[in-house]
Design a protein around this nucleic acid. Structure first.
Lengths: 171, 171
DNA sequence: GAAAATATGTCAGGACTGTTGACATAAATC
DNA sequence: GATTTATGTCAACAGTCCTGACATATTTTC
């Protein structure tokens, strides 16, 4: 059993408002600097952020269908097609006909794609680890809780699905 | 004096790594849903995110020069020109010749622009307030600390400058 | 005061990413 | 067999970013 620290009193509505007003800017700057470390790597490979996002979700959800990827990214199939074409042509992503439903094209990251994706994940993870190192575990869980609350319920569920995927991979 | 809660033990490197790996996804989803509430408003006004960003920083730093705005947004003057042209033509932003340096064009949000900017800020602030309400103050400061740590030193200083601007405005 | 530097604006063209609309094919389902 | 579903593709357009080049007004420097 750990000690149960005294919970701090709730913030006043005015204080919440001020914190939220400031957080608008925190979101902008933090996200920009977060994406920037990946952008630098992508540039070397002549790829854009859209390729990064597609590669990321294919890598995290190996064997994902095109339709499911579209729902996750929330873009049109025409937008995805352009991005996917390049990933496939560059040998970063492979397609496999679905076993139960042969209309489906299951997406898989190739060995080469895995290397690039790892590089991208490493860069962003390193930035985040540095940001977390100074903070105590409570800060970290606070960060996590707030980010989850900002997300829509739909995306929260997608995130939960990722956790399961990562956990089963680790096993 | 408040009680000093027992600080939690530091996380293991492996735990930090896992938390950072998960945070990659938190950043993606939270930022997407955060920007989405503004995008819906912008759509009604036939404006894009670039207009939002420019309007935001002009509004927060009234009288900012074009050069300073360029440094803040980290885009080229040609990119900004297109965005600024529309904001000015639509009567959302005004320009004023600099008093000490007459080459400068100081940027100011018009009354109309202020109304739109308030609408945008309100929408994002409301989302964040909802996200904060459930969390205790410690979570909130944890979120803030992590976001600040993710940012570059340069952007952290920009953020601090905003705090001063907001504080002096409130006074 | 002339030359150089600075702040800003603009034209041209290209890349990436998103959209809508239309149409095609193969496979599953009713 | 007809319909629906999963996917792919062609075409056109918009927004946002970039590079490169050039122009103007104003300030600073020599």
């Amino acid at each position: 059993m750990s000690d149960s620290p005294t919970p701090a009193p709730p913030l006043s509505p005015a204080a919440l408002d001020t914190a939220a007003r400031e957080a608008i800017e925190l979101m902008f700057f933090a996200y920009r600097d977060f994406t920037d470390v990946a952008d630098r790597i992508l540039e070397e490979h002549d790829l854009g952020r859209a390729h990064h996002r597609a590669l990321y979700f294919i890598g995290t959800n190996g064997g994902i269908t095109v339709g499911h990827l579209l729902e996750t990214l929330k873009i049109t199939k025409q937008s995805l097609a352009r991005v996917l074409r390049r990933l496939i042509d560059n040998g970063l992503v492979d397609q496999k006909v679905g076993s139960s439903d042969r209309r489906q094209r299951l997406l898989l990251v190739s060995k080469e794609g895995e290397a690039l994706l790892e590089e991208l994940i490493d860069a962003q993870r390193a930035l985040l680890v540095r940001a977390f190192e100074g903070a105590d575990p409570d800060s970290l869980s606070g960060f996590r809780g707030v980010m989850l609350s900002i997300m829509t319920e739909e995306d929260r569920q997608r995130f939960q699905a990722t956790l399961s995927a990562l956990a089963s991979r680790a096993a």
